[in-house]
Amino acid sequence: MRRLVLPGDIIAEKPLRLDHTIVEEGKTCSTVIGIFDEEKNSFIPLEGLWYPTPGEKIIGIVEEAKLNTDLIDINAPYKGLIISKFSETSLAGGDIIEATVKELDKTGTIILSRPRVLFGGKVLVIKPSKVPRLLGKQDTMIRQIIEKTKSSISVGMNGLVWIKGGDSDMATKAILRIQDESHVPGLTERISQMLEGKE
């Protein structure tokens, strides 16, 4: 059975190893709003922050380009860092980039690699917890949007979405709607109706 739980709610009378939960006095408690699935032993946060894992793609905005390192604002608790000697792309303040999380250093800084500058367009910030829904299973949702709007779109796991060209207004509307209605069943159908102009 799935249930909606809030911070502090006891979800199991025994200790479980699950992200977004803690164990106190042998009991497992949720720490954020989420859905706990007892049978599958899974916890899906509905509101939450982005916790980076190596290999993930992010979108960021260059905050400060220095001689040896570039500081990247990735809308997260920590700054992204690009070490210039490992990168052939030269960056300037204000550039929008796509990059990959390489590693997390001890101080919490996120080392990024393989930066690519995205020219023009705009960046939309959505809740990181909604990114998986925006991508869809095997990226089906985002592919549908790109196909129908003819926009170039790049989605960062950190919740930043870059959009350029095509019907970018429609793409924006669709993305924001997915964010707002991610938890309402039948979303894929509604979005495809919307993209077909049937709403």
């Binding site: 911070p7 946060p45 922050l49």
Partner: peptide
């Protein structure tokens, strides 16, 4: 709680 910042109680 609405922000998703983890808390052990509310």
């Amino acid at each position: 709680a609405a922000s998703g910042i983890p808390m052990r109680d509310m």
